[in-house]
Computed example of a mutant assay.
Amino acid sequence: MRYLRIAALGGLCLLLGACQSLFAPGLGEPLNARRTSFEHLKPGCQGEQCPLVNVDTLSFDDEPALGAAIEAQLLDLVRATPDSPRPTSLDSYEKRFLDSAQPGWSSYLQAKVREQHDGLVIVELSSYVFSGGEYGRPGRAFINYDRRLHKVLSLQDILLPGQEKAFWDTARLAHQAWIVQNKLIEQDPNFVKDWPFQQTPHFALTFGALTLKYDIDRIAPHSVGHPELKIPYPRLNGIVKPYYFPGRGAQ
C-alpha cells in the first residue's frame, strides 16, 4: 500500500508539473554538495618552484545545473581579459596552463557555499592566478541559484520591472556609508575623487543584507582587497521582488 501511495503521488507531481523529485531535499532543507579538490604540478617537475593548479570545487547530484554553472564561472574567472575565450573545461584549462607555465606560476580556484536559505543556494567563487610580474590576478564572483526555478539568477531576475536605476542609486548610498564606516576619507582626503562609486556584476542575496562584492582596484586601492557593500533589505522595498526577501521565499 505504501508503494502505491508513492506511485500515486509521483503521478500527481507529473500532472501538476510543480513537484520536486520525491527523493530530492525539500526547498527548506539544505542542498547537499559534493566536494572535489586536487592539486596538480607540472608533469616531470620537482622542487618548490613547480607550477601548479589547485582546484576546490562543488557539484550537486540533485541540481546538476548548479554544478555546471559553478564550473563555467570558475573558467570565466581565469580568463586573462573579458574578451578572452572561456576554456572548455577545468581539465583543458589545467593542461593548457601547466604546458605553458614557467617556474613559480600557480593557479588557485575555489567554490564554496556561502549560504542557503529560502530555496536559494549562494555560492562564492574565488581565483588567484600568478603568471609572473609583481602581482597575481585575484578574482571573485557569486552565484545565486534558485532551486524552485533551477536556474542562476541575474540581477534583472530579482528586480521589479523598471527598478534597475533605483537599485544602483540605493547601492550608491551603501557605498557612501561604507566609506564613512571604514574612515577612508580620514586616511585619504581624495578618496572619493580617486575611487568613485561603480557598479559591479557580483551580488548575493545573503540573509542579513544584499551583498555587493567588488574586484580589486575597482572602488578602492589594491591593499583594501575585495570590498563588500551591504544593502539592508528594508531599503530595497519596491525595488527587489518580495519573493527574494529572506523569510518570504520557499519554505
Rank of each mutant, 00 (worst) to 15 (best):
R5Q: 14
C13V: 13
L15F: 12
G17A: 05
L22C: 03
S37D: 12
F38G: 15
G44P: 10
S59H: 12
F60N: 05
D61P: 12
L66F: 01
I70N: 00
Q73R: 15
Q73W: 04
L75G: 02
L77W: 14
A80M: 11
P82K: 02
P85T: 08
R86H: 06
D91I: 11
S92N: 14
S100G: 14
Q110G: 09
V113D: 03
E115T: 00
D118E: 04
I122N: 06
S126E: 10
S127E: 06
V129K: 06
G133R: 01
G136S: 07
R137E: 15
R140D: 02
N144F: 01
R147T: 02
R148M: 13
L149D: 11
V152Q: 05
V152L: 01
D157Y: 04
L160D: 04
Q163D: 13
A166C: 06
T170M: 06
T170H: 06
A171H: 08
L173H: 14
L173V: 14
H175P: 10
K183P: 03
I185L: 13
I185K: 07
E186P: 02
P189W: 03
N190V: 13
N190P: 12
W195N: 05
P196E: 04
Q198C: 03
Q198S: 11
Q198D: 09
Q199H: 06
P201M: 01
F203W: 03
L210A: 00
Y214F: 07
I216G: 00
A220F: 01
P221Y: 02
H226R: 13
P227K: 09
E228A: 10
V240W: 06
Y243Q: 10
Y243F: 15
P246N: 10
G247E: 11
G247M: 11
